[in-house]
Design a protein around this nucleic acid. Sequence first.
DNA 1: CTAGGGTTAG
Length: 572
Amino acid sequence: MAYVESILQKCTSFPQIRQLHAHLLVTGLFLLHYSRSKFIDFAPPPPPPPCPTARHLRSVPPPDHDWNALIRGHAQSHHPINAITCYLLMSRAPCKSDALTCSFFLKACARALAPIESFQMHAHVLKLGFDADVLLQTTLLDAYAKFGDLDSACKVFDKMSKRDIACWNALISGLAQGNQPHEALKLFDKMTQSNMMPNEVTVLGALAACAQLGAIGEGERVCDYIKINRFDENVIVCNAVIDMYAKCGMVEKAYSVFEGMRCCKSIITWNTMIMAFAMDGDGEKAMELLSRMGGAGAAPDDVTFLAALCACNHSGMVKEGLRLFESMEDHGVRGNMKHYGSVVDLLGRAGRLEKAFDIAESMPMPPDAVLWQTLLGAAKTHGNVEMAERASRRLAEMGSSACGDFVLLSNVYAAHSRWGDVGRVREAMRKKKVKKVPGFSYIEMNGAIFQFYNGDKSHPYWREIYGKVEEITSRIREFGYEAETNYVLHDIENEEKENALCYHSEKLALAFGLISGKEGSVISINKNLRICGDCHVVMKLVSKLYDTEIIVRDRTRFHRFKEGSCSCKDFW
DNA sequence: CTAGGGTTAG
């Protein structure tokens, strides 16, 4: 057997390991051989399509001590759920789980999004007495975070007897990724106040949280920390910094980081920067960067093209976008769902709805709901009832019942004064109990973040804020503003009478910003949905009459209001 | 009588 060992050690490629595997099968030694982890590690990642070699390796019952390798292999595969089945088989064998078994199993649960099994394993971990194992507890915490059970993740964290850097990081990024950026930043602050020194991974979590919130103040502080500790020599950190600046509306800053990088750029660096220009609606800069990639030795991939297409969408570059889409194959990139969605968006914006529909019908994969929603949105923009109905029908067939879909369709009818149809759609919404996504906005002020819902009256100074809204309205009215009641119908989130148009969350945030911000400072607002047409008009007028710059981050892009106009050129 | 575990950007 010794010779097998030494050959095994020397294997460095899949063909080599396959030869050895074949030899062992032929000689019957495979069943006797004790360590199969290396074989499993080498088995190539597919299925799909199922790889016969890997399947064989996984179907032969292993000797007792090899279960961990098998579970680990499954956990990392395309079908992590098999690790769970494998664990069940193991529990029938005369073999005990150790901390590693639990760890691999939990990793599989996290990847397979299997909360119940994780819960069971948690009980097991307690029973087996592994509560003091920091690594295992971190895996457990991460599993909870990955499927969004952040309460349980926090509980695991609180109960840990010792906490090292990785478990802090796991919770910080878990919170950031689980839509709790406030909590993530709180934890980050708590960490810096304790004796734990944030490392590269920690700042990634913190930056992600800042990016989500558009919290530039906090973001700058994290960047200072990064510079002091020379974390900016790490590409991953640089990428996250660029992304953070971009999402806080500071493309120039993002670009200066991009240009000043002392480490090698990765494909993700380029993609992040192109996406940054896209969000800013600067299609030309995005395309310019794309053309610079080749010279820098970077080959554009699927994400690069998606980012560039997105940039074309946001700046009305229809021709360029279509040309780009057609050039993808020359670069060996096959279009995926998102690319097709992007093209449908592009054509839809240009009013070429039939062409967009044809693409949706003939693309190589069945369109998803998002794609039909895109077409529906375009149909609404161009007031095309028939196309809106077609898209809505597809959505209904797919069982999608998002609030926005119904509202869009109803808006198209409303634009044609087809009130009977409007009523019918509203009735369908009631019947299906469609849930609305509440609209809210954030504003950062003196380092703190304030959140407003539509019609929000929970702020201690809400009376002052509402008073300011009224002042704004009457002042801009002198300059010809008229509340576009049309938008009450067109507006996605505004349905309730009490959440009338003028108390949209972004208007409340704006009023609050005008009251409490320093004179001449930029007002920066983040919104979870798209900005509505009326708010857009108001922002433009306020930027002129109050002589202030306003930046609104939408669900998908930025609007910079200055001297009465917006950077999106009313195109969004 | 091995080795095998946690946090990480678009």
